[in-house]
Simulated scan of single mutants.
Amino acid sequence: MSSINLRDLSVRFRDGSFGLRDINLEINPEEFVVLIGPSGSGKTTMLRTLAGFVQPSSGNVYIGGQNMTHVPPERRGMGMVFQQHAVWPHMSVAKNVGYPLARKGEKGASISKRVERTLALVGLEGFGRRKPASLSGGQRQRVALARAIIADPTVLLLDEALSALDEPLRDALRRELVSLTRREGLTTVHVTHDRAEAISIADRIVMLGDGRIHQVATPAELLSAPATADVARFIADATVLSGTIKGGKVVCAELDLSWDLSAVQAIDEVAEGDGVDIAIPPQSLSIGGSSVHAEITSVLFQVTSYSVTATTQSGHNFRLSISGQVPKIGETIQLMVRNPLVYRAF
């Protein structure tokens, strides 16, 4: 069991751009943390800095209380699984999995016992003699996972490790991965671009943007109270509009709407005259009783409801969920906006 502590961590590339800026993050032993954010937000840079493949420009990386900032990757006691499983085709499954132990100088009998145990952990018992070419993509990814954990790492790093798999295999392996890390007591950091995946498996989510941490929260906290309008836009499909505080109301001139301050979720303290960002997630929208006219421009079936995009005459797109009657593209609807999220605009 190991904690991870990043202190004042920055990564500056040779061209002068920053991959990470002033990162401070503490991850508890056995915690499953997911890094998420748009492309270029710093997710993979943070993971590679943790692993030791990227050297920080400033700050420190602590693993289990030890300063690992200048320790090479092979001495950090971590396991890592990449998007592409990268198993060696000329080796058997057992040789692939046992390779980290062989490199450390362990002998055949000892390696064999640990390989058998680890293959059983990842659901590949009896596969040791097979070659990777005879395995499915999901099975090869399990081989990569077994290889990452066989040397008893204290930390497991996953870089888009499931994204190359098709559903429902991806869902099945996702569930097994969470169970495995719990049973083995692994501290896990997982990078994904899939919001639904992050929400479903994380103890906490680290939301990144432009190399900075925008929010660290449980999935429930992140969905109910995004810290910034950008987080609300990314994680909750919120539409963000500009507004002003006037006469105790939040006024949105773009759509000719206003709400009493008591009828909004004010994330930041706001005062008369402040400019604000108004984030409107799908759960704040319903049909009827409003002067906001919109046309349905897309409809996706989602098992128990329909995910709809509705576009106003001003060109604003809103995402909402509709149950019951099948919505039709081109249909005109009226939108009611309740309890939007309000942030001070900077």
Results as ranks from 00 to 15, higher is better:
T332Y: 01
Q66P: 06
H193I: 12
A279I: 01
R170C: 04
A271C: 10
H193V: 14
H190R: 00
R174V: 09
Q83S: 02
I280H: 00
T312G: 02
I278M: 02
S134F: 10
I199P: 07
R204D: 00
M207W: 10
S3Y: 00
E221P: 02
S242W: 07
I213K: 09
P29D: 05
L186A: 06
L223N: 08
L255T: 04
K249Q: 15
L124M: 07
S284Y: 00
R76G: 04
G52P: 10
V326N: 12
A294P: 10
G98F: 04
E184D: 09
Q215H: 07
I322K: 01
R183P: 11
F301L: 03
F53Q: 05
P219R: 08
T187V: 00
T304S: 13
L157C: 03
N67G: 01
A109N: 05
Q265K: 06
D210P: 06
V240N: 02
A86F: 10
R170D: 13
V122I: 05
T332E: 03
G16N: 09
V191Y: 03
S39H: 07
K43C: 03
N60V: 10
L9M: 09
T181V: 10
V251M: 01
L121K: 04
G289K: 06
G77R: 04
G137W: 11
S112D: 14
R170T: 07
L25V: 02
A172E: 15
H85Y: 15
V303F: 01
I296R: 14
V251D: 02
R338F: 01
G19N: 05
D194W: 12
Y99G: 01
L285C: 12
Q325C: 10
Q302N: 13
E184Q: 14
Q283C: 12
V54I: 15
F32I: 05
S17D: 12
P72G: 12
M1H: 08
P153T: 06
I213E: 04
E295H: 00
F32A: 07
P226Q: 14
I329H: 13
A94L: 03
I322M: 14
V71K: 11
R129S: 13
V206L: 13
G273Q: 11
